[in-house]
Nucleic acid binder design. Structure first.
Length: 244
DNA sequence: AAGACACTCAACCGCACCTGG
DNA sequence: TCCAGGTGCGGTTGAGTGTCT
C-alpha cells in the first residue's frame, strides 16, 4: 500500500521551533484543542506538518510536562521497567507522570544504558560520587550556619536539598557545574527562559515568578523549585565567600 | 588557543496500528 | 472485508555544547 507522505514537503518548515511558533501552537491548542493534528497547522497558521506539531506539543509544550533532571527514583524505575518491558518507551513513560517517551529514551541512551551494561564502570561512578560528595561537604563546611543566613522564608531552600541522596548522577553533575560557574551568568540565562515560560504560563495560569521565587507557590514544579534553590543558594554562597 | 572528540537532546523519519467509511 | 487517512511509537540524526589534548 502506497501511503501519501505525512506532509507535503513543499514550503513546510523543519528544524528547531521558534518562540513565535511555540506561542502560536500553544494559543491554538488552548483555544481549540488538538482533535486533528493533520489539520491543526493549517488552521493555526503554522508552516509545519501535523506530526511535527504533535511532537512539539507532547514532548515540550504540554503544561503537565515535568522538566529538569531525573531523580534517582525515576532512574531506578526506568531501569526496572526497561528490564521488564524492553524498549517500550511509551509504556515506561505512562508510569512516570510528567515524563515523555522521548525524554526517557534519551536518558536511557545517554546515562542508564551505560550504567546497566557496563557495571565495571560503576567503580568510576562511585569515585566520582565520592569526589562530588566531598566537594559538597567542603562547601557546606565553608557555609554559614542556618542562623547566620536569614532565609526570609525560603523554607525548603537548604543545603540538605543539595546533599540529598535522592539526586541522580546527572543532578550531581549539574550541581558541581553550577558550583564552579558564575551564578550571575546562570541566572541571566534562567531569566531569559523565564521570560518565555512566564508568557506562556500567564496565558493559562496565575503563576507568578516573584511569588515562586519566594517558594510560596505550591503548584511550582519540583525541578523549578530545585533550580531556584540552587540559584538562590549559589548567590548566598558567593556573597558569603566574598564577605569572608 | 584551537582543533578534535564526546555527549546531549530536540526533532525527524518511517513503520505499524487503529479507526471509520 | 478492504482501504485510506490519522496517530503513536521507536530508531536515528544532527546541531549545539562541553571536554580533552
Amino acid at each position: 500500500m502506497v501511503r501519501t507522505p505525512c506532509c507535503e514537503k513543499m514550503g513546510l518548515k523543519k528544524g528547531p521551533w521558534t518562540r513565535e511558533e511555540d506561542r502560536i501552537l500553544i494559543n491554538y491548542i488552548n483555544s481549540y484543542g488538538h482533535e486533528n493534528w493533520r489539520a491543526l497547522p493549517r488552521l493555526a497558521g503554522l508552516l509545519r506538518c501535523g506530526k511535527s506539531c504533535r511532537l512539539r506539543w507532547t514532548n515540550y509544550l504540554k503544561p503537565d510536562i515535568k522538566r529538569g533532571n531525573f531523580s534517582r527514583e525515576e532512574e531506578q524505575i526506568i531501569i526496572e521497567l526497561h528490564a521488564a518491558l524492553g524498549n517500550r518507551w511509551s509504556a515506561i513513560a505512562a508510569r512516570l507522570p510528567g515524563r515523555t517517551d522521548n525524554e526517557i529514551k534519551n536518558v536511557w541512551h545517554t546515562h542508564l544504558k551505560k550504567r546497566v551494561n557496563e557495571p565495571e564502570k560503576l567503580r568510576g561512578v562511585s569515585d566520582f560520587q565520592q569526589k562530588t560528595s566531598r566537594l559538597k561537604e567542603e562547601d557546606v563546611e565553608s557555609l554559614p550556619s542556618s542562623s547566620e543566613i536569614n532565609h526570609g522564608g525560603h523554607g525548603q531552600t537548604s543545603y540538605s536539598q543539595l546533599n540529598s541522596p535522592q539526586h541522580s548522577y546527572s543532578e550531581i553533575s549539574s550541581i558541581v557545574t553550577i558550583d564552579k560557574c558564575d551564578f550571575q551568568a546562570v541566572k541571566k540565562i534562567q531569566e531569559a527562559d523565564e521570560d518565555f515560560w512566564s508568557e506562556i504560563f500567564s496565558s493559562e495560569t496565575t503563576c507568578d515568578f516573584t511569588t515562586m521565587e519566594r517558594g510560596y507557590n505550591s503548584s511550582m514544579h519540583d525541578d523549578m523549585q530545585f533550580w531556584f534553590s540552587v540559584l538562590t543558594r549559589g548567590e548566598e554562597l558567593s556573597e558569603f565567600r566574598a564577605t569572608k
